[in-house]
């Protein structure tokens, strides 16, 4: 090629200041001439910004399955990446939770009978279901359960924000799994769903206690208290389902907002750097 368009013509082309015919001429020349292509002007910042967007797309790891799922449900991308690291959301935990639920459902179905005793078969399920999110919270955040805890504790998100985010994710997960198992149960549907309010109340109580004690300690205490409360029904009142009666449910419903308010007021104490 012996002829090249003058530089200012290429610049005018890039700025869209050429008439259509000249535009076509310059374009057909550019298609064949590396030297003139290199002369097309550009802003350095534009090129850098454009490259950064591309680099991030081509050179990034594929998000984890949990991250992709959470994003699918509308969780912001950075929150999804954060939650995917929750130890209590690891596959082992999910399998364990599903296993417990499976056993409880199987037990209920095997012992199910017609007549007035039908509800009794649900008891193992109803007792176990609220304990699942509780166990998950014990394993969600803290020095003893999270191997990377110490590095995280020095970051701005550490403390109540990290704990509450993870607890919420664990709770949603447990409630979704348990909710999916509920229709498989025999017995009256209203009773089969009686686990939900105790689960929420116990979770809120675990968070509230965690502002004073380590989460595993709080959870262990609550699990013992819950088992005791369920056992107290038949022992003292002669009612197997006292802990799930409408009166008890009303109590749970009142406890949830009260406990959450307490957690909010004492949230600073969930921080490892807070003076106790």
């Amino acid at each position: 090629m012996t002829w090249h368009p003058p530089r200012d013509l290429v610049e005018r082309y890039a700025r869209g200041r050429l008439d259509p015919v000249l535009t076509m001429s310059v374009e057909s020349h550019l298609a064949r001439c590396p030297a003139c292509r290199a002369a097309v002007p550009y802003e350095e910042e534009w090129l850098t910004a454009s490259w950064e967007r591309i680099e991030d797309l081509v050179d990034r790891p594929r998000p984890r399955l949990a991250t992709r799922l959470l994003c699918r449900f509308g969780v912001p991308e950075h929150v999804a990446v954060f939650l995917a690291a929750t130890p209590a959301l690891a596959r082992g935990w999910l399998v364990a939770m599903a296993g417990v639920l499976g056993f409880a459902v199987a037990a209920a179905r095997l012992s199910a009978q017609d007549g007035p005793g039908a509800a009794d078969a649900l008891i193992p399920f109803l007792v176990a279901a609220p304990l699942l999110p509780l166990a998950g919270i014990a394993a969600a955040y803290g020095r003893h359960v999270d191997p990377a805890y110490e590095s995280q504790a020095a970051t701005p998100l550490a403390g109540w924000r990290a704990l509450l985010l993870r607890a919420l994710a664990v709770l949603c997960c447990a409630v979704a799994l348990t909710g999916a198992a509920t229709p498989l149960l025999p017995g009256p549907p209203g009773l089969a769903a009686a686990w939900l309010l105790p689960a929420l109340a116990l979770t809120a109580a675990a968070l509230a206690l965690s502002t004073r004690f380590a989460p595993p300690v709080s959870v262990a205490a609550l699990a013992a208290a819950w088992s005791g409360a369920v056992a107290a029904g038949p022992l003292f009142a002669g009612d197997l389902l006292l802990a799930f009666s409408p009166g008890a449910q009303a109590l749970y419903a009142l406890a949830v907002p009260a406990l959450l308010a307490l957690v909010y007021l004492r949230r600073a104490r969930l921080d490892p750097g807070e003076t106790r």
Binding site: P76, H78, Q152, T155, P156, L157
Partner: peptide, 10 residues
């Protein structure tokens, strides 16, 4: 990247 999120690089 996980620690970067904790450091609020959203």
């Amino acid at each position: 990247e996980y620690v970067a999120i904790l450091k609020e690089l959203t």
